[in-house]
Design a protein around this nucleic acid. Structure first.
Length: 483
RNA sequence: GCUCCCAUCGUCUAGUGGCCUAGGACACCGCCCUUUCACGGCGGCGACGCGGGUUCGAAUCCCGCUGGGAGUGCCA
């Protein structure tokens, strides 16, 4: 028995939409679940106005990042032009199509308050012929119904009376998506069409075209099984909008989401693994996934939950793996890729690899996305402490006892054994002598040395930074506070 | 307007007639841990839209209503 052949068929845009990513993923699940399934990538670029080669590169690289590389493709729909035109001429020859010279203004004007959908079949019997202003329409049967057998939703019946005579080829001769998609699915022997719910209403048109092609081509090709995935929506429960919502997969990659966490989260939108487990490896998703179990209702893309899941994935990384994954964010010069428009605060000369190796474990459990790292560790590498002036004013200069704490710490640290444990103890003792609990005692030191009030554990950081740098910074902070 | 889809905590979901005084996760709120921030642990808040049926028994089946959404291009 032959395995499923599925295709992911995006139209090229400037970025890879998260909804597209989810569709690609569910197609991928179906292909991988079978031992001999095939996952095809087809770029639906029949609209020449919106088509640029770099958009295709973007789709391919985003899919690669997600680990969803196709088994076949990327194919370009535009490469199959001859077959599309052949289909058109066969369909025309058999009387399935007719020419129409109505402008869209005319169509809407004539429609008026009429309840009939779309085009009113005005040109159906006019016997027009090809010309520079005539488009080709499909003569939809006026009675009867077409049923879409949807694996997720069950049978959906469409009455032909509500399907208009849609255009299959523009007056320019360009073949439209409706037809090209069907011709290509037939040619690729697609067995499962898995796509967003927004495609459900035009599925009967494609089925009509499919069966018409069976007739004119003399080859009966089995209809694919259809599965329309629930939409991804925003807080307002509207379809994710490219204008208002953060929908670019690349932007999540650039913020430092791990691809495996991102894929895991996407897999949770509209489907769930068995048991009370949500964090699961891709292999588990593939093994358990069934289209029949996909949810029917729209899902909100919740960045907070994604972020939490990403944090779990980060914490689960082996330390050296964590450091490796951080390369684009901390050593972009050593990486063939780095997040766009994001500068690293230090220079290659300032960055100290051995030191970072010691620092990494301190931050691994306190971040949720990789992009948080530079701001958290910058003080280790910069010669000038990057002060948060408001924090400094509050924690150090505006606080008399903090000044005392700084002075006392400088004295005590001068000879203290330089281990985090001892620095911890010494700070506690010095603080106590000034009537400060450790929480209060460490605050001015932290701000003096790291520039801010939050960050990696202080004493561990001081140990890594070393005695001379620490003392230098404490003294500099004291001068800054007094001066 | 017309066609179609959908309806369990704020969110993602489990649930396929009795195991449900509805489970988990995110978010939120407490408490604990604690050198900041986090992590972690414990606990709390919190849902079957409404009305009719069917059935000994409905979150689960049927109908209606209401509410959301999508489609309605010489876009895909």
């Amino acid at each position: 028995m032959k395995g499923p052949r599925v295709r992911f068929a995006p139209s090229p845009t400037g970025y890879f939409h998260v909804g597209s990513a989810r569709s690609a993923l569910f197609n991928f699940f179906v292909a991988r679940k079978a031992r001999d399934g095939v996952f095809i990538l087809r770029i639906e670029d029949t609209d020449a106005d919106r088509n640029r080669e770099e958009w295709v590169d973007g789709i391919v690289s985003a899919m690669q990042w997600l680990g969803l590389s196709p088994d076949e493709g990327p194919f370009r729909q535009s490469d199959n032009g001859p077959a599309h035109r052949e289909a058109i001429s066969q369909l025309w020859g058999a009387g399935f199509l007719y020419y129409c010279d109505c402008t869209s203004d005319l169509v809407t004007a004539r429609k008026g308050d009429n309840k009939t959908p779309g085009y009113d079949r005005f040109c159906r019997e006019r016997g027009l012929v090809a010309g520079p202003t005539t488009a080709l329409r499909f003569a939809t049967p006026t009675d009867g119904t077409t049923t879409v057998h949807d694996l997720i939703r069950g049978d959906v019946v469409f009455n032909h009376s509500v399907i208009d005579d849609f255009v299959v080829a523009k007056s320019s001769g360009a073949v439209l998506y409706a037809l090209a998609n069907v011709v290509d699915d037939r040619a690729d022997r697609i067995t499962h069409v898995i796509r967003g719910e927004e495609h459900l209403p035009n599925t009967p048109k494609q089925i009509l075209l499919w069966t018409a092609l069976d007739v004119v081509s003399g080859t009966r090709v089995d209809l694919p099984a259809y599965a329309h995935l629930p939409l991804l929506v925003n807080e307002q429960r509207k379809k994710l909008s490219k204008r208002k919502d953060p929908v670019s997969t690349e932007s999540y990659r650039d913020q430092g989401f791990l691809s495996e966490a991102f894929v895991n989260y996407l897999g949770l939108l509209g489907w769930a693994p068995s048991g009370d487990i949500e964090k699961a490896p891709l292999a588990d998703f593939i093994a358990e996934f069934r289209l029949e179990d996909v949810s029917h209702s729209p899902a909100f893309f919740d960045v907070k939950k994604l972020t939490h899941l990403n944090g779990e994935y980060i914490r689960a990384l082996a330390p050296d793996e964590f450091i490796e994954r951080l390369t684009p964010w901390v050593r972009p010069w050593a990486s063939d890729w780095s997040p766009t428009d994001r500068d690293v605060p230090w220079s290659p000369e300032q960055f100290d690899e051995a030191l970072f190796f010691l620092v990494a474990p301190l931050i691994q459990e306190r971040i949720a996305v990789l992009g948080e790292v530079p701001a958290m560790v910058d003080f280790f590498f910069l010669s000038e402490v990057p002060y948060d002036e408001a924090a400094f004013a509050k924690t150090v200069s505006g606080n008399p006892v903090a000044i005392e704490m700084l002075r006392a710490a400088i004295t005590a640290f001068d000879t203290a054994e330089w281990t985090s444990e001892n620095l911890h103890r010494v700070t506690a003792d010095v603080g106590e002598s000034l009537g400060l609990v450790l929480r209060k005692a460490q605050a001015p030191l932290r701000c003096a040395v790291t520039g801010t009030t939050v960050g990696p554990p202080l004493f561990e950081s001081l140990e890594i930074l070393g005695r001379s740098v620490t003392l230098e910074r404490l003294e500099a902070a004291l001068r800054k506070a007094l001066g």
